[in-house]
């Protein structure tokens, strides 16, 4: 193919056409994404990165309620993705078909653990810990204990209902939530591998 020019003039190497054709995929409309709800596992991981940065920016501006609210979802997404990756999911797999089987499994394998809804951070931490232990791949004890300590703390200080709160969440509380979620984010590979 070589250099392709218009009107006889050569383009620079930086604009050289690639020797393969790049398929053009129309981006999914926002309305369709909203309707479909959760997407792929890889969407969760990217969203978790972005919401973490959003929370950091809110924290820097002193918006405690917003920062705590947003960062809680990062914990939820990372714990769900850790459970599903440990179960053998690939990044390109859909999330929603894995939710009900995980819930049913937990009802049977851990009848004492309450399930509030699919946003329940403590529930997902228990599922991860128990699944790993049952398959003989328990988390190292210090990390397992820290995960549960953090999940309990987030369970007490975060819920999706924070969206109805005004400026009631102190910056100290938000910072604590942020630090807890930062631990989960840092240890995410350890949680599922």
């Amino acid at each position: 193919m070589g250099l392709v020019g218009k009107g006889g003039s050569k383009r620079s190497c930086l604009t050289k056409e690639p020797p393969w054709s790049i398929p053009t995929v129309a981006p999914m409309k926002l309305e369709d994404r909203v309707r479909d709800g959760e997407g792929l596992l890889q969407d969760f991981e990217l969203a978790a990165e972005e919401r973490f940065l959003d929370a950091q920016a809110l924290l820097a501006r002193g918006h405690g309620t917003g920062a705590a609210y947003v960062v809680g979802y990062v914990a939820e997404m990372l714990l769900k993705s850790a459970v599903f990756l440990f179960d053998g999911a690939r990044p390109s797999d859909l999330v929603y078909p894995r939710l009900s089987p995980a819930k049913k499994w937990a009802q049977k394998a851990m009848p004492g653990v309450p399930f509030t809804n699919f946003h329940d951070i403590l529930f997902w931490a228990w599922v991860l810990r128990k699944k790993r232990a049952e398959r003989g791949r328990a988390l190292p004890e210090p990390e397992a204990q820290n995960l549960m300590r953090i999940a309990h703390r987030l369970n007490r200080g975060w819920s999706v209902e924070l969206r109805y709160f005004g400026f009631e969440v102190t910056i100290e509380h938000a910072r604590r939530c942020f630090e807890d979620v930062a631990w989960i984010k840092k240890h995410h590979p350890l949680l599922w591998r």
Partner: peptide, 28 residues
């Protein structure tokens, strides 16, 4: 809707197979 389908499949499967269903990770 798709979430409900997943839940119905999961519930039905558990009702028939009980503990054998513990290995189930995807219902679509």
């Amino acid at each position: 809707d798709q979430r409900m389908r997943s839940e119905l499949i999961t519930d039905a499967y558990w009702e028939v197979f009980d503990d054998k269903a513990l290995a189930l990770t995807v219902a679509m």
